[in-house]
Amino acid sequence: MILSQFLILAAALFAFGIYGLLVRRNIVLILLSVELMLTAVNINFIAFESVFRSPDAIGQVFAIFIITIAAAEVGIGLAIVLMIFRNRKSANVDELSLMRY
């Protein structure tokens, strides 16, 4: 196994995430895409950690922090989606364009 194969895989996942983020209209699906991107970042951390070992396993600790923050982000994100849905009867981002000229 070489390091690059994992990094390229992570890059592909990250690119999928960006595509979803830019294309999807439903907010829940956009959040799914963001999760995909976070996972790609985690793969990078873990891969680097397994090659360049650090005394305190910093890469894995960071991955754990990212997972934790992502969980919190999903909770808050879905609560916001719920609020938006209640107020506007829709969960599509392109209909949320009040902040325009």
């Binding site: 070489i2 890059a11 690119a15 070992r53």
Partner: peptide
Amino acid sequence: VPALLSVGVFVLMAWGSIDAFGTTLVGAT
């Protein structure tokens, strides 16, 4: 445009990975 952008991101990151780490081995450590 989103497709072009994501392909651009992928190409850049993949090129960067190969350029920087080439054939660094995993699992030998």
